[in-house]
């Protein structure tokens, strides 16, 4: 796939919708296209974080370690971004992400990610929105779990 095609692809991702094309080209050029085989991990919980991944094609599952072993908490697909929390907060990976099918990703280095957010507030808003959505979902799950414990 050529750089130009990649730029077109990036433009269709909501996160980058408002980023100017020249910057998208830079993003595409300096980011690595990585293909993962099914079952291969993008990263593991507890690893040090150096990049975020944008899923271009395929599906991946998000897993967290529990005392009973790994537990799947979400499945993500095309246009999703994973691994951004660890590089935003500078903490080790909070979950493991593993390819469910053959997975095409764009790996964005931490440094580049920060630059883009600084330069394009719209990207920051988009990420905020995504994070808020996830928080809302997690809160709902927590509420449900607590209700269940209360009922017992």
């Amino acid at each position: 796939m050529s750089l130009q095609e990649e730029v077109d692809l990036l433009r269709n991702i909501p996160l980058f919708a408002k980023v100017e094309p020249a910057k998208l080209k830079f993003l595409a050029f300096t980011s690595q296209r990585l293909t993962f085989e099914p079952g291969q991990a993008l990263f593991k919980q507890g690893d040090m974080a150096d990049a975020a991944y944008i899923i271009i094609g395929g599906e991946a599952e998000v897993l967290v370690n529990t005392p009973k072993g790994e537990m799947a908490v979400a499945v993500v697909g095309r246009n999703a971004i994973v691994g951004e929390i660890a590089i935003l907060c500078d903490v080790p990976r909070t979950a493991t992400v593993r390819a469910k099918s053959k997975l095409e990703t764009l790996m964005i280095a931490k440094d580049l990610f920060y630059r883009l957010i600084n330069e394009f507030p719209s990207m920051a808003v988009e990420i905020m929105r995504e994070l808020a959505r996830r928080l809302e979902k997690t809160t709902a799950q927590l509420r449900e779990a607590m209700t269940q414990i209360g009922n017992r």
Binding site: Q32, L34, T35, E37, Q40
Partner: peptide, 11 residues
């Protein structure tokens, strides 16, 4: 190896 490690393949 007699070749080049391919780009874009994870690990």
């Amino acid at each position: 190896l007699f070749g080049k490690v391919a780009y874009g393949q994870a690990q």
